[in-house]
Nucleic acid binder design. Structure first.
Ligand SMILES: [Mn+2]
Ligand SMILES: [Mn+2]
Ligand SMILES: [Zn+2]
Ligand SMILES: [Zn+2]
Lengths: 143, 143
DNA sequence: CGGTAAAATGAAAATGATTATCAAAAGCAG
DNA sequence: CTGCTTTTGATAATCATTTTCATTTTACCG
């Protein structure tokens, strides 16, 4: 899948006439090696660990490109930091967020998605995206 | 309802041992006179119009109290500003957000709420709150 | 009523994430 | 290579929100 994503990005870059740079390769590699929901700062530190030359601004810029290319998605939780998660083509999920330990549980629910479509239709609204976040305490934190 | 909310806040203040101040009265009055989804800056300007002495920090501080007291709710959309909306006791709704004209349509859906409970239960998760925002184009902006 | 301790306020500074600037470096078509 | 354009990195700028802290208010007690 990693190779798949690299190809996705290369195709996107080509279609946009973007140049291929060492920095973007590095950032993509590091991003693909992370777990879900990385903050820019976290990613920047990881990148810097192996490649001290890379600037923070470039990490910001490149993550935006990943979103445009469809291989990352912005996740804004309540902690003041934009996070990015991997996205498989066509895949979608929502989040249970534990306010105790910051754990994030992902889930999908087809019925909820359908109900959202119905609601939108009822209001003459054309959905582009949506966000469902459930905040509370996970099994361990409920204790 | 306005009187009701004032009482709610006074009770909250009493229970917390908060002192009663002119500023809080003013800010509550102005807040209750606004429409839904006010930003802090908007509210601050309204307050300043009639009461130039009141500081912005106090508006920030007081809005937090309203949330604690249960008569306001934070709404974080994608525009970099925290907004606050009125909350009636026990009432809840979610949002359709038009990315064209920034209109906000409110809706309630009991089935979605129930499905969320099921999902939480399935994951041993104790829900404290949730947020469902549907982004897209409203009827006018779809054109 | 004053007198006082604690809480609240306002102005200004600090913070922190993100974005803009711009000179220097790198990629690429010819 | 050459020349032109994009990209980069360091740094400054933004902008919403928070913190600080000296001053003002409030609540309470004698
Ligand atoms: Mn996720
Ligand atoms: Mn609302
Ligand atoms: Zn937890
Ligand atoms: Zn619209």
């Amino acid at each position: 899948m990693i190779h798949e994503k690299k190809r996705t990005f290369n195709e996107f870059a080509a279609s946009k006439g973007l140049r291929s740079t060492r920095q973007r390769d590095i950032i993509l590699d590091v991003f693909l090696s992370t777990h879900q929901h990385v903050s820019v700062e976290e990613l920047y530190l990881k990148v810097k660990a192996s490649n001290p030359g890379v600037g923070q601004a470039t990490v910001y810029r490149t993550l935006k490109l990943f979103v445009e290319a469809g291989l990352a998605r912005e996740v804004l939780l309540h902690d003041g930091q934009t996070r990015f998660e991997h996205v498989m083509a066509g895949e979608h999920h929502d989040h249970l967020v534990c306010t105790g330990c910051n754990a994030i549980i992902e889930f999908e629910n087809e019925t909820i998605e359908k109900l959202q479509d119905e609601i939108a239709t009822r209001h003459g609204f054309k959905i582009r995206s949506h966000k469902l976040e459930i905040y509370g305490l996970c099994a361990s934190c409920k204790g």
